[in-house]
Every structure is written in C-alpha cells, then in structure tokens.
Amino acid sequence: MEQFGGRYGEDVFRPEQAGEGERIDFGALAYDGITMARLRALGAGPGWRCLDVGAGTGTVSRRLLAEAGVTSVLAVDRDVRFLSERPLPGLDVLEADVTAPDFDPGRFRLVHARFVLMHLPGHDRLISRLAGLVEPGGVLVLSDAVDLTSGLPGSVTPGTPYTAVMRAMWQGLRDTIGTDVGWVPSYPHLLRTAGLLPVAAEIHVPPLQPGSPISRFWADTWQRSRAAMLATGLVDDTDVDAAVRYLDSEECAALSAGMLTVWGRKPGGTEPGGAGPGAGQEATDRTTGPVSSG
C-alpha cells in the first residue's frame, strides 16, 4: 500500500487554525440540503439510531435530529471541538479514528460519511467496516467528491484559472495526505461487495457563482492547501491568486467538483414501526441516478 507522510487535520485543514470551522460550514451550506433530502427519502426518522462519521461541525447530525426527528445521532470525528460547542439532546459525541482497529461504536439504522473516505487509505476495507456497523434493514450512505476538471469522457473542458488550480489541489492533497477521488466512482461496486442490496447512486454538481457558499469554500480551501499546491510545480502564487479572483468575478462560468452519493441497505431486519425490510425501497428506486446541477 502506498504510504503518505501526512494526514487530514494535521498537515492541512488543521481544526485549530482560525476560520477552519467556517470553511467546513461553507461546504455544508452547499451540500446539506441534498444530503438531508436523500437521508429522509431513505426513511431517516423517529426510531432511528444514526452514526455520522467524520461529522465535522455537526450540521448533518443536528439536522437529522431537528428536521428528520431521529432518536439519536453519534457524531464521530478525530477532533470534536466543533461538535462539542453546541450540545443538543440526542446528540452524542465521540472522539475516535475510524481507521483504528478497535473502532466499533455499535450498530445503527443509518451510517453516514461525507467527504471522509476520499482522504483515507484502504477504502475497500473501510467501506466493509462501515457496512458492518449497519444493523439489518439499515442503510449505509457515503458521499465523496468527483473531480470534473479533467472533463467527462469525450468532452472538452476549457482551460480556466479555476480548472488549473483545482487540478493542482487534487494532486497536492494526494501527494501530502493521500487524498484520492479517482476511486470514488467504484463506490456502488464496493457497497454491493460489502453485502448491501439494493445499491443506488446520484450526483450533485453545484454551479460556481460569485459569493456562493461553494465558491467561498473552494477559495478558502485553496488558501489552506496552498503550500501543497505550489509543491506540485503545476501552479504558482500568481495562479492561485488569479483563481481566487476568478471565483468572485462575473467571468466565472464553471461547475464545482461533484458530490457522488451512494447508498445500500443491509438485508434483513424490519423498519421502525413494523414494516418489512423493503420499506423505503420505493423512494430509493424512484430517485436512482439523477444528476443535479443546482
């Protein structure tokens, strides 16, 4: 296995760095609505015990309680300072490393992880482990980034300050902490291999607009990963500064990295309220595979 010297939260995106919580929240503003719509369509609600892996500032955990009305959420992160700032009834916080051999917090109706596994090695092993934390009849929901800067097969992606810097960012993060989004499209296969059935997926691709949460997220992310980006030799400071200005200009016409969400249900068990193991499948099947751009 290829080894990398750094880790997320240590070499880049350190939680103690001023403004890191706000950077995470900009991403949440861009993606939380899509995430919550999917979790509720899968049936998340009263009676559900949920595990939120790599919970960050806890926006999904709190919305599961406040909006979906789930019974409890265990929010897990390697650094829980943002999670501990705002206690909420039903929200339990655990400081832990999901890659640790002894990580086993119990069994849950929902296991959710967003923008987590792409930063970790051994993704096939981790997906199998997370699937093992799902109780019979429950669901595993994984979301990670899909890089669109290289274009879709057969397409032409125009060269812009944004695309040049995004390519350098992905390479810099890979070199520094092992981030790898290249295997994210294999999620459906990996969930099926882990014994989940049925498996389905959707992708959300937000447009970049001046002042939007996703544009502010990327600008802040570039500033915090600038050293790793410059080390690739693909860009210099002038390029990064130009890309930040581009994001905030009316000339910006591009798509953000996509968020691929994949989910699968563990066979057996019953839904809360006594429904059979297929409950919620109609909603899942109806929404398999849409592409959202707004």
Rank of each mutant, 00 (worst) to 15 (best):
A164G: 01
S249P: 06
A275D: 14
Q171L: 14
W48N: 09
T179A: 13
A228E: 07
R174W: 09
V98E: 09
Q171I: 06
G43Y: 00
I214A: 12
L91T: 11
G58C: 08
I34V: 12
I177L: 11
M166Q: 12
A219R: 10
L230G: 07
E85T: 10
D237S: 13
V139F: 02
G258V: 06
A131D: 03
R245A: 13
S212L: 02
P101M: 01
G178Q: 02
A279H: 13
R174E: 12
G276I: 12
L94D: 13
G274F: 03
A75R: 06
G106F: 04
I24S: 08
R114W: 05
L65I: 14
G154T: 13
P46C: 07
L260A: 08
A227Y: 08
P89G: 02
H123I: 15
P267M: 01
G137C: 00
E10I: 14
A231G: 10
A168P: 01
D97K: 03
T160C: 01
I24K: 00
Y187P: 12
A18F: 10
V76I: 05
G45I: 05
G269I: 03
P290R: 14
R86W: 13
V98P: 06
G273H: 02
L130V: 03
V235T: 05
D144S: 05
A231C: 06
V156N: 06
G43K: 01
W48R: 12
G211E: 05
L234E: 01
P277G: 14
G289L: 07
M259H: 08
D52N: 09
G19K: 00
H123K: 15
D285S: 15
A194K: 02
P277L: 08
V53N: 09
Y246L: 01
G273I: 09
A18I: 04
G9P: 02
A242K: 04
V291T: 15
P136N: 04
V291H: 10
A96H: 04
A283W: 10
W48C: 15
A219F: 01
I34E: 11
E20D: 00
V116F: 08
A75P: 09
M229R: 07
L65V: 12
A113S: 13
R49Q: 14
G273N: 04
S293F: 15
A55R: 05
R245E: 12
P121Q: 09
P105N: 08
V240Q: 00
A55C: 02
G211C: 00
E16K: 06
V262H: 04
A44E: 06
L197S: 14
A131T: 03
